[in-house]
Amino acid sequence: MDQGSQLPDADERVTSREQDAVRLLLLIDGVCESVPEVDLAQPGLGEAVGVVRTQVRLQKLDFWLRNPDYLADELLTKYEESGERRLLELAGLILDSEEPEVRRYPMLRHHFGAYEPLDDALAVLRSAGLLVRRRRGTVNRVRQHDYYLLAAGRDVARELIREASDFQYYVDRVALVLDLADGRGGSQLKKQQYLQREYAEAARGDRIGSVSVRARARLETLRQACAAAQEGLIDD
């Protein structure tokens, strides 16, 4: 990585409504689960092809997508737990590049962890007939939001990928995010993300700071340990 290059300050970088809409469409398309028959029978959901349960889960998955430095650091954690070299290599692909700087869009620290208002972006998808949001609970207390991807939304997502190769980046990163999530719900993901000091100690209402410096140092340490282990095997 060229440490001397001049990059915009990622801590101040924000996304547009259109950028958020595209990213969320590709995220939902990549991580959604199958729609139960009972849901398909509901009015307006007959064309649903997938669902993401709860706004909390969507926000936590989006955090990793918007913050490649945190994504890479989680890959390193998973590598330490499993010893799977592929995870070390994937983290290296991110941290050896400028991706943590040029692809990072920080989120606000909210009462429930990382948060960024998504209503405007989701409204773009809903108004275009690509997504349906359903609230569960009572009139006075919404218990959760579920996001149903419609067949038209999947068609648009696949068309975006075919016509603009740059969007393949999000497809690849969504696959990593889904692998890291490992079927966990929003509350479990929130607990995992709170283990990051920079995340947990951010003042409420402030943007969550980067872990790229620490993650890159950690990557180097793990690479050296891996190389030493390999040398030991060869010597034996």
Rank of each mutant, 00 (worst) to 15 (best):
S5M: 09
G83Q: 04
D119Y: 14
E81G: 06
P68T: 06
R85Y: 15
R223F: 13
V132F: 00
E47I: 03
A21K: 05
L71H: 07
Y148S: 10
D146G: 11
L122P: 08
E220S: 06
N140E: 08
V213E: 11
K191N: 05
V35I: 14
R13S: 04
D120H: 12
G205S: 04
Q192L: 10
L90I: 11
G185Q: 07
K190Y: 05
G129K: 02
Y79H: 01
R66G: 10
E159D: 15
L233D: 11
V49G: 13
T77G: 06
N140D: 11
L108F: 10
V211K: 00
R162G: 12
D235T: 01
L219P: 00
Y115V: 09
N67K: 04
D11A: 04
L122Q: 10
R214E: 15
D39Q: 11
D73F: 04
A123Q: 09
A175H: 08
D39F: 15
V177Q: 12
A152K: 05
Y79L: 04
V14C: 07
V52Y: 15
A151Y: 07
E89R: 12
E80W: 00
L87P: 05
N67A: 12
I208M: 02
L40I: 13
D182I: 11
A215P: 01
N140S: 08
A48S: 10
Q224R: 07
L222V: 03
I208V: 02
L75D: 05
Q59Y: 15
A175S: 10
M107N: 08
G44R: 01
G232S: 00
D155I: 06
L93W: 15
E84Q: 09
M107P: 08
Q168V: 06
L150V: 02
E81Y: 08
Y147G: 15
V38P: 02
Y148L: 10
K60C: 14
E80N: 01
A228R: 07
K191C: 02
L108E: 14
Q59A: 15
Q230I: 06
A152E: 05
L27P: 15
F63Y: 14
E201R: 02
